[in-house]
Design a protein around this nucleic acid. Structure first.
Length: 381
DNA sequence: AAACCGTGGTC
DNA sequence: TGACCAAGGTT
């Protein structure tokens, strides 16, 4: 490891200030209540490029649906995707699922304990391997995420001469983090550095006045990042096709023949070969992006990656839907009660929710469906 | 190395 | 309102 030109005293001071600060100002987050390596793993994958506030809710739901590696490994992929619906980067749940199946098949369901072994699992890169190993197993290995990078970038004053995001900078940050590491409490140290970045050493307006590292910080807040390309915009339109089906009441007390109205929505599954959101379910796309105002049911903006989609939603009858929409993947009329439990894209979920057509959150819908299945099984058995 | 993969909160 | 961007990984 390259020698840093920092005095030992400064290293020790930074470490002590950071750990003392973390002691009294860390947030109470759901995954910090658990010592289960599996729970830590799920939280780290869910936190990849995703805000803590969003993950707080979804993490708990996910663990209720899939409490163990075994439960996750056994679940159908569509259920795992459904539990992830709206979180984005759907390669994450797929790889998490595959990794769980690998762990069950090859490791007796026990997660590997070293960062080197964890790194071999799909969906676990350098950051996630170090995070799980340090937090769940106490391995003395430093994490480098966006927060750590920014914090140490500022503390060390490496703004000039090194391109942001370069491999060279990442390596230097990792070395510094390793020197600062509190070998007594690796997991807490890593979380402390990230916590500081997330709550004090903010990207735009850092709170240097309350920062425990400010006396030893080289820049005290300066931090430029390369400009991003401007967002593009596109117009698209989707069909909200609804129908009401009348079903005979069956089962208990079916002596009197009664018809039950079931509202259904037409959903389309994106092809497995799609580069974006494969196998996720969405509303069929309309042929014409231009929808006359009188037929417009809803207009929403939906940003995906670098593109702002101006989306227009038009209600379409069952008879006209074939003529008006583009042929995509497989289609299914889905009872609204079940739609919420499907692997919907974020856009489809947003539209159906805003139209008051989805009664429940994805996790609730999934749980409800499972209960129904169990009742059906019980009735059958 | 650089491009690609989603989303919603925030200011 | 729109630009910014978050506990990254894979190819």
């Amino acid at each position: 490891m390259a020698r840093l030109e920092w005095e030992t005293a400064k290293i020790v001071r930074l470490r002590r200030m950071l750990m003392a600060w973390y002691e009294h100002s860390h947030r109470d987050l759901p995954w910090r209540e658990s010592r289960d390596p599996y729970a830590i793993w799920v939280s780290e994958v869910m936190l990849q490029q995703t805000r803590v506030a969003v993950v707080e809710e979804r993490f708990k739901e996910f663990l209720e649906l899939f409490p163990t590696v075994d439960a996750l490994a056994r679940a159908p992929e569509q259920e795992v995707l459904a539990a992830w619906s709206g979180l984005g980067y759907y390669r994450r749940p797929r790889m998490l699922h595959r990794a769980a199946q690998f762990v069950v098949a090859n490791c007796a369901g026990v997660l590997p304990q070293s960062s080197a072994e964890l790194r071999l699992l799909p969906g676990i890169g350098a950051y996630t391997a170090a995070a799980i190993a340090s937090i769940a197993f106490g391995e003395c290995v430093a994490v480098v995420d966006g927060n750590v990078e920014r914090v140490l970038y500022r503390v060390a004053g490496w703004e000039t001469g090194v391109r942001a995001g370069s491999a060279a900078l990442k390596r230097k940050v990792g070395e510094l983090a390793g020197e600062l590491m509190d070998a007594e409490r690796p997991g807490d140290f890593n979380q402390a550095l990230m916590e500081l970045g997330a709550t004090v050493c903010l990207p735009r307006n850092p709170l240097c006045l309350v920062c425990p590292l400010s006396t030893d910080c080289y820049t005290r807040g300066e931090h430029r990042r390369p400009p991003r390309p401007p967002m593009l915009s596109r117009e698209i339109a989707h069909a909200l096709a609804l129908r009401t089906k009348y079903e005979r009441e069956t089962g208990r007390g079916a002596s009197k023949a009664r018809a039950r109205a079931v509202r259904e929505v037409l959903l389309e599954q994106r092809p497995a070969s799609a580069t974006v959101m494969p196998t996720m379910w969405e509303l069929p796309q309309l042929r014409e992006a231009a929808v006359p105002d009188r037929e417009l049911c809803m207009a929403v903006r939906h940003a995906i990656m670098q593109v702002n989609y101006y989306v227009r939603i038009r209600t379409v009858t069952e008879e006209k839907v074939a003529a008006l929409t583009l042929a995509g993947g497989a289609r299914r009329w889905v009872p609204l009660r079940e739609a919420g439990a499907m692997a919907l894209t974020g856009l489809a979920r947003k539209v159906l929710t805003r139209a008051r057509l989805l009664p429940t959150e994805p996790a609730d819908a999934l749980a409800a469906m499972r209960t129904t299945e169990q009742e059906a099984d019980a009735d059958a058995g």
